[in-house]
């Protein structure tokens, strides 16, 4: 989905996140809530409780990989990225493109077959793989609407809610 009618980011929260100096007191630092809304279309933005999750994750690198200057958790990333190599930005969307399937990004991928991070997920994939991956593993909430309520566009897309099919009369069609 191109996210044509995409909402503007939760600007305040995102600005807070972006302004986070990479070296600032990390364990205790970070914004308290971040509204994840870049991709919002079928679902409403996610009011992400950052403070709660920093406590749960144990290490910032669990989600922010190497960008804060901590050693990455994944040994495969650690082959190149070491500790004390903070990145310019720690925001997810800085590295994980929102327009993962847009012409521009696809062209970039095609033009550079040597690109190391070819399998890097886009923003939507990164959010879901990271959040849902952990939620499922830890027994956290893992239904779609546990994190983001469906919008009316979403109901139309999924043929649910007020767009649900009329109840079926005679068993299934086969």
């Amino acid at each position: 989905m191109g996210g044509r009618t995409r909402k503007v980011l939760g600007v305040t929260a995102m600005a807070a996140l972006l302004s986070l100096a990479p070296h600032a007191g990390l364990a205790a630092g970070g914004p308290t809530t971040v509204e994840l809304g870049t991709l919002s279309r079928l679902f409403a933005p996610v009011p992400f409780d950052h403070a709660k999750h920093t406590g749960l994750a144990g290490s910032c690198a669990e989600c922010h990989h190497h960008t804060l200057g901590e050693a990455p958790v994944d040994p495969n990333c650690a082959r190149c990225h070491r500790a004390n190599q903070p990145a310019k930005s720690v925001a997810c969307r800085e590295c994980h493109p929102a327009e993962r399937f847009g012409a521009e990004y696809l062209a970039r991928l095609a033009a550079n077959p040597q690109l190391y991070h070819t399998g890097k997920p886009g923003l939507k994939g990164a959010y879901h793989q990271k959040c849902l991956g952990c939620h499922r593993a830890m027994g956290g909430p893992s239904g779609c609407e546990d994190c983001h309520p469906m919008t009316e566009k979403g109901e139309a897309f999924y043929h649910t809610g007020k767009y649900a099919p009329a109840p079926h009369k005679g068993g299934h069609e086969e």
């Binding site: 989905m1 879901h128 849902l132 499922r136 893992s142 779609c144 469906m150 897309f157 999924y158 043929h159 649910t160 809610g161 649900a164 099919p165 079926h168 299934h172 069609e173």
Partner: peptide
Amino acid sequence: VGCRTCEAACNKEQGLPAPDKPFND
């Protein structure tokens, strides 16, 4: 994760008839 979003997307893209059950069922 079995969310069936791909099924919904296909239905829309290909202009297929409405499903018997919602795609989030």
